[in-house]
């Protein structure tokens, strides 16, 4: 507990000669708050204001409309497939990178970052190029009566592609910081590979993992660019929530567009809350886990 008290003291009471004058602090704080207000709070408020401009009943109608529900369902389905797959992949990749030495390791680290580096639109185009009617695998897919592009599998693939760095990126530093000694200790004590992973490695990174999953999930629900390219915008079939918002907006149905958008905004706020909780919990853990006291 002593460590936590120490941290709080450091935050609240700095020596006087190390802090800025009062006026400077006030000005800086006000600038930051004004910036937040203009660029974050006002737009966020506008979403809800627009959504509710025709009253609560209209809001509920827009959200309960079958096309909106189908888009919501599809969005959840996509995330429900993409997030667990990326969870498994991310853990495996991070484990391999952090705990083992092998040729091609740097190439793998670079590859994991690829989806961050390319525009989501290009990510979508890649799948059209691969699975589209004129794509490399198109004829084979048609011969077997499989539909990827302009169908649910395409949406899932594009979402996986765009969101796959999140879990791995969060885990690699946490696992690397942990080193390999605990795993070695487990092996000497007679634990097998799986037991070591399950009982030693995984628990020590659980907060990092949760953090990655939350970010991954948020992006999977909100992804627009890549999904837009592979979706084909078939109403009630291949429209996710972000795409549905766009369609409503393009049809000048502003109130409904904002009503559906408010659902995504809710998700965003929930994500932020969850993220803060996880950050708080994990920082508390690392405080307690920092270097020996004696």
């Amino acid at each position: 507990m002593a460590t936590i008290v120490g941290v709080q003291n450091r935050l609240t009471a700095g020596p006087r000669n190390l802090t800025e004058p009062f006026a400077v602090r006030v000005v800086l704080t006000l600038v930051a708050l004004a910036y937040l207000l203009v660029f974050l709070v006002v737009p966020l408020g506008a979403v809800f204001a627009e959504a509710l401009q025709k009253g609560w009943a209209a809001y509920v109608n827009a959200v309960r409309e079958p096309m909106a529900l189908s888009a919501l369902w599809l969005t959840l389905l996509t995330a429900a497939i993409a997030v667990p797959l990326n969870l498994v992949f991310g853990v495996a990749a991070a484990w391999a990178i952090a705990k083992f030495e092998f040729p091609g390791k740097n190439a793998l680290i670079t590859l994991i970052d690829l989806p961050f580096a390319v525009s989501p639109v290009i990510s979508g185009m890649v799948f059209i190029l691969l699975f589209g009617r004129q794509g490399y695998l198109g004829p084979w897919l048609q011969a077997h009566d499989l539909k990827v592009v302009f169908a649910v599998p395409g949406l899932v693939l594009a979402t996986i592609f765009v969101t796959f760095p999140f879990v791995a990126r969060e885990l690699i530093p946490v696992m690397q910081a942990g080193g390999t000694e605990e795993e070695e200790a487990a092996r000497v004590l007679g634990a097998g590979g799986w037991t070591t992973f399950y009982r030693v490695t995984l628990p020590s990174v659980k907060w990092g993992l949760l953090f990655g999953v939350i970010l991954c999930n948020a992006r999977a629900l909100g992804e627009f660019g890549a999904v837009s390219v592979v979706s084909g915008h078939i109403r009630g079939k291949t429209n996710t929530l972000p795409l549905h918002v766009e369609i409503l907006y393009n049809e000048y149905n502003f109130q409904a567009a904002f009503a559906v958008a408010s659902l995504l905004t809710f998700v965003a706020i929930l994500t932020l809350v969850a993220k803060s909780v996880v950050e708080w919990r994990s920082s508390r853990r690392t405080d307690v886990l920092s270097e020996p006291r004696a």
């Binding site: 000694e181 605990e182 070695e184 200790a185 092996r187 000497v188 007679g190 009982r199």
Partner: peptide, 29 residues
């Protein structure tokens, strides 16, 4: 294999399992 050598190994930086209590650390093996 290291698992089957029946050696006890004490690491320089102890390598205790951080998320387990002292009791569980000792009970792990």
């Amino acid at each position: 294999h290291v698992r089957h050598r029946s050696v006890g190994f004490v690491f320089q930086h102890y390598a205790l399992f951080r998320h387990m209590s002292v009791f569980e650390n000792v009970a792990f093996g």
